[in-house]
Amino acid sequence: TPSSSDVQLTEEAVRRYLIRKPMTTKDLLKKFQTKRTGLSSEQTVNVLAQILKRLNPERKNVNDKMHFYLTE
């Protein structure tokens, strides 16, 4: 059988990660790697950007890098 996506890039999935701990955009991209989601690089960037704009997470700098996070 062809390998199907075992990870889904959804608003709920992103929300769960950002509630757990602050993450950079790169951290998030690692959680939703294209080989896991079956999306293209461009789709991943576009969808993740839309989700983050909707969630409008808090931001803070840790080690000079911008991290997003959410509180419940």
Binding site: T24, T25, L29, S41, K53
Partner: peptide, 20 residues
Amino acid sequence: SSSEADEMAAALDLELNDFM
């Protein structure tokens, strides 16, 4: 590859900078 990851992160940061 890590360079593709870097490119994606850069593209995403750019998208978000425009917005935020």
